[in-house]
Design a protein around this nucleic acid. Structure first.
Length: 273
DNA sequence: TCTTCACGCGGCGCTGAGCA
DNA sequence: TGCTCAGCGCCGCGTGAAGA
């Protein structure tokens, strides 16, 4: 499918007028769907004084907003412990069209039409991605792949031949030395019940036992549950502890703020969930 | 004397604008 | 590119008044 000629020409003109930085930032937004000003700055404007980086980021996002390529979500002025919240941006249909031109972008729900919980979840995944990029820079590792939803979803056949879908929040592949670390990511905001977490673990087990991931990619990634506090971490450790003992090493649980560093580190010998 | 409440002020993190 | 300033609204803290 292609765009109408008039629209396609306009999109092509728009694309030609954009800098490499503009396109890279748009690509990041397309991949992660939602980014804050702070995320864009850490990802794409990593050099210069903090004030310069900040100003250039704002200029970049203003340019993209003025052209209708991204939209800025309403932000909170003031907030917990004072200070205004950073602005959040997502791609518009025009922004998607510029990236996919001359193809018509797939119709997907715009982020500003979704619920706050979904936005928080997308931002948590985006924060993980930005943290991983920074951790890879620091530790001389390579972020080989970061697949967000829905690209990272896996369809497979259950025991009865029925089609099942595994829906991780992201799939991460990091190259460190001679090793490649692969991980399924589940970002937990503490909103799902423990029985739901248990059911999700069971889907991972079925997928593991299907052997499909091992056939397609040679290895089954470790499943990381990323949580915000210790109480939740302990609760999920208990859930994983109720799984069959041969399956427990598939899972790991970490605090969100430590996740990026742990995902680029080789696990210690005998390290399990 | 102690506790509770209301009020005002400054600082916080971020953005946008203007000037050199 | 560097710097400065104004503005946003909430929070923490200090202060003083009122009540027990």
């Amino acid at each position: 499918m292609t765009a109408p000629i008039g629209a396609a020409a306009r999109i092509a003109r728009l694309r030609r007028s954009m800098s490499e930085l503009d396109l890279t930032a748009l690509n990041s937004l397309d991949r992660l769907r939602l980014l804050t000003t702070n995320h864009v700055q850490r990802l794409h404007l990593a050099t210069g004084s903090p004030a310069t980086r900040s100003r250039r980021t704002r200029a970049l996002l203003r340019r993209l907003t003025d052209r209708g390529l991204v939209v800025r979500l309403p932000r909170d002025i003031g907030g917990h412990r004072a200070g205004s919240a950073t602005s959040t941006f997502c791609l518009t249909r025009l922004g998607q069209a510029v990236l996919t031109a001359p193809e018509v972008p797939p119709r997907r729900r715009m982020l500003w039409q979704t619920k706050p919980y979904f936005q928080d979840h997308m931002l948590a995944v985006a924060e993980l991605y930005v943290g991983l990029v920074e951790a890879c820079r620091d530790k001389n590792a390579e972020l080989l792949a970061f697949e967000a939803e829905p690209t990272c979803w896996r369809r497979f056949s259950g025991p009865g031949g029925e089609t099942l879908i595994l829906k991780p929040d992201a799939v991460v592949r990091v190259g460190t030395g001679d090793f490649e670390l692969a991980s399924f990511i589940e970002v937990d905001l503490g909103t799902e019940s423990l029985p739901t977490i248990h059911r999700k673990c069971q889907v991972y087990l079925r997928y593991w036992r299907s052997g499909q991931e091992q056939r397609d990619h040679g290895v089954f990634p470790r499943v990381w549950w990323l949580v915000h506090d210790l109480a939740r971490l302990k609760a999920i450790v208990r859930v994983v502890g109720r799984l069959p003992s041969d399956a427990q090493p598939l899972f790991a649980i970490a605090l969100t703020e430590e996740a990026a560093d742990q995902l680029v580190q080789l696990p210690a010998p005998g390290d399990t969930a």
